[in-house]
Amino acid sequence: MLEIKNLHASVGGDKPILKGLDLSVPKGEVHAIMGPNGSGKSTLSYVLTGRDGYEATDGTILYDGEDVAGMAPEERAAKGLFLSFQYPVEIPGVPTLTFMKEALNAQRRARGEDEMSAPDFMKTVREKAKLLNISGDMLKRPLNVGFSGGEKKRLEILQAAVLEPRFLILDETDSGLDIDALKVVSDGVNALRSPERGMLVITHYQRLLDHISPDVVHVMSDGKIVASGGPELAKELEAEGYDKYVRAA
């Protein structure tokens, strides 16, 4: 589903961050990427989703067989790529519900589908918000403004649930969460697992992977995948740290 080959990328045009990254995530699988600070994990998430200034300088990103490297972020979104942000952005003046409805219908228009009616949208959101403990009141507030860390992350997952992307990238979704919030968010993510959907879970810590059990764990260091293995690899990293991989890179 996602095939990355020899990906090189730089930030702001000159600083190389990704240095020949290879990664393959078949549909239906959940892959985790772990790695120390500065290894290029967040850069990878931005390059995949098309953030301005994060350019692929070499290699290919094939998503469902199609090269997405030159596409605008909204085109990639409409094709089903979703990034749950490490730091969801506060947007004053735009009510959360309005934003979600505009986003959903913009994606639908881009795919040539009919827009969702307001009553259908409300029904969908209400059902999904319940599972994530998100109140109707919270949805009326401006997007992410004044939300706690946990509320922001829950709202990211709610957006994923409503937009129904085909591939999710979760960038440090566990950061800023207490144990209870981690469970709610993880349950939300697990509810989205499906044979048709792929996921890439970026994290520093094993604790998220106790809740979202990955099929494959990759270790990233200095812009490359330096090791891959089963869930036991995450446990090994938790016990022994990244040292040996950092030295090897």
Binding site: A72, P73, F85, V89, G93, F99, A106, Q107, L163
Partner: peptide
């Protein structure tokens, strides 16, 4: 970028940001 990532075209995202400002 956040708004575009959720599917809003750049023009619409800019307009929405300015209007809300």
């Amino acid at each position: 970028f956040y708004m575009q990532q959720r599917g809003l075209p750049e023009s619409e995202a800019r307009r929405l940001l300015v209007e809300s400002f």
